[in-house]
Amino acid sequence: AQASVVANQLIPINTRLTLVMMRSEVVTPVGIPAEDIPALVSMQVNRAVPLGTTLMPDMVKGYA
């Protein structure tokens, strides 16, 4: 199954992502693919992302 990017902590709005904030997990619905984690580093989220939330393309500025 495809692993997705999941928030490893609460990520406040406009925060630049770092590796420690993200983990890969097989979840439904599928979000951003886990292999994109390196590309997500330093991108900003456009909303607060609670712990355990799957990151979707529309949550990350410049990803989609």
Rank of each mutant, 00 (worst) to 15 (best):
V20R: 11
V6S: 02
Q9Y: 15
A34P: 06
L19A: 11
P50E: 11
K61C: 07
N14D: 15
N46M: 13
A39P: 04
V30E: 13
L19Y: 11
L19G: 05
A3Q: 08
D58Q: 11
N14E: 12
M21G: 03
P57K: 06
I37A: 07
V27I: 08
L19N: 10
V45F: 00
L51I: 12
T28P: 01
M56P: 02
Q44T: 13
P33E: 07
M22Q: 00
R16C: 07
V45Y: 00
V6N: 00
R47M: 14
Q9L: 15
P57D: 09
V49P: 01
S24A: 14
R23Y: 06
Q2T: 14
S4F: 02
D36I: 09
V26Y: 06
A48L: 09
V26E: 12
T53P: 01
V30C: 05
A64W: 03
S24T: 15
L51E: 15
A7M: 04
R47F: 07
S24D: 06
A48N: 13
Y63V: 04
E35R: 06
M43P: 01
S42Q: 08
P33W: 15
A48Y: 10
V45L: 07
L10F: 13
N46A: 10
V49D: 01
I11M: 05
A48G: 09
M43V: 05
L51S: 12
L19K: 12
E25H: 11
P29V: 09
R16A: 15
V49T: 05
V60K: 02
D58C: 11
N8A: 15
A3G: 11
V60A: 01
L55Y: 00
V45A: 06
L19V: 07
G52Y: 06
V20L: 15
V6M: 10
D36A: 14
R23C: 05
M56C: 05
R47P: 02
M59Y: 10
V20C: 05
L40Q: 00
V26Q: 06
T18A: 08
V6F: 01
S4Y: 03
N46D: 12
G52N: 11
S42Y: 08
E35F: 11
A48S: 15
Y63K: 04
V30L: 15
E35A: 10
V26S: 10
Q2A: 11
A3L: 13
L55G: 01
V20Q: 14
R16D: 05
I32P: 01
G62V: 05
L19E: 07
N46C: 04
Q9M: 13
P29L: 05
S4H: 02
P38A: 06
P57T: 07
V27G: 03
M56A: 06
R23K: 15
P29Q: 08
V41P: 02
V6D: 01
V6P: 01
L19Q: 08
P33I: 13
R23H: 08
N46H: 09
P57H: 06
M43A: 13
M59R: 03
A48E: 15
V27W: 03
G62D: 13
A64H: 15
T18F: 04
D36W: 09
M56H: 08
P38E: 10
T28D: 15
P50K: 07
A3N: 07
D36H: 12
A48I: 14
I11V: 08
N8C: 05
N46W: 07
V20S: 09
G62F: 08
A48C: 05
S24W: 07
P29F: 03
V41F: 06
L10I: 15
I11D: 01
Q9D: 08
V49L: 10
N8D: 13
M21N: 11
T53E: 09
R47A: 15
L40W: 02
A1H: 06
V45Q: 01
I32M: 03
V49Q: 02
A3E: 12
I11E: 01
T28E: 14
M43F: 09
A7Y: 00
A3S: 12
A48V: 14
T54R: 03
P57I: 04
A48R: 05
I13F: 08
G52I: 03
V5N: 02
M56V: 11
V60T: 02
V41R: 07
L10H: 09
A1Q: 13
S24E: 15
Q9W: 09
M22D: 02
N8F: 03
A3I: 09
P33C: 09
A7P: 02
R23I: 13
A7H: 01
V6T: 07
V60I: 06
P12G: 07
A7R: 01
P33Q: 08
T15M: 12
I32R: 00
G52L: 03
V41M: 08
P38Q: 10
T28A: 13
V49N: 01
T54I: 10
T18M: 10
A48W: 08
A7W: 02
V26R: 03
E35D: 12
T18E: 10
L10R: 07
L10A: 10
V27Y: 02
R16M: 15
T54L: 05
T53G: 11
T18Q: 12
L17V: 03
V60P: 00
T15C: 04
P29Y: 03
N14V: 03
V5T: 07
L51C: 05
Y63W: 15
S4A: 03
M56I: 12
A34G: 14
T28G: 05
V45H: 00
A64N: 13
A34M: 12
A48T: 14
I11S: 00
L40Y: 02
G31H: 01
Q2M: 06
M22V: 13
S4R: 01
